[in-house]
């Protein structure tokens, strides 16, 4: 347990906070993700990259939670607006990750996962394709469609 905490705690908590934007919900989600690693120990131990497994589970868990909350996306945007007014000078200074967050609700859940792994985790196209069990062209197509919503900053390289 301590190894999970020291190696992966920051990454998983960061993912949950990024998507849920609520400290309490993020911590609960993080506990669920690590609990999943313990209750699905065989799957987890069989992974070449436990970090990849955990981040995939964390991403899916949070995206599903957002979808499950009634009017979840609306509340999510309200939290986004509040976070911006505290931490940034305005819409003009949004970084790529803020832009990604603002646009997530406009795409389907699998594209959301691909977008988060690519733009937020900094995975390559090949790494995203492996994580999601898709071909590189399929992932590229989904990311390019997403990029059409946000312009040059979201260009797929």
């Amino acid at each position: 347990m301590r190894e999970l905490y020291t190696k992966y705690g920051g990454s998983v908590m960061g993912r949950c906070r990024y998507l849920l934007k609520d400290a309490t919900k993020a911590e609960d989600a993080m506990h669920d993700v690590f609990a999943r690693a313990l209750t699905h120990g065989d799957d987890f131990r069989a992974e070449a990259s436990p970090l990849t497994w955990l981040m995939k589970i964390a991403t899916n868990h949070c995206l599903n939670q957002l979808r499950s909350e009634r009017a979840g996306w609306r509340q999510w945007f309200e939290r986004d607006a509040a976070a911006r007014s505290e931490g940034h000078g305005g819409a003009g200074e949004l970084e790529t990750r803020d832009l990604v967050r603002r646009l997530l609700a406009k795409v389907d859940v699998e594209t959301q996962a691909a977008v988060v792994h690519y733009h937020v985790d900094g995975m390559t196209l090949e790494e995203v394709a492996t994580v999601l069990g898709r071909s590189v062209p399929t992932i590229r197509k989904r990311l390019e469609r997403f990029a059409e919503l946000g312009g040059e900053e979201l260009r797929v390289r």
Partner: peptide, 11 residues
């Protein structure tokens, strides 16, 4: 952290 994960495991 440990206590929170343990509660989630029980659930």
């Amino acid at each position: 952290f440990e206590a929170g994960v343990e509660r989630a495991v029980q659930r």
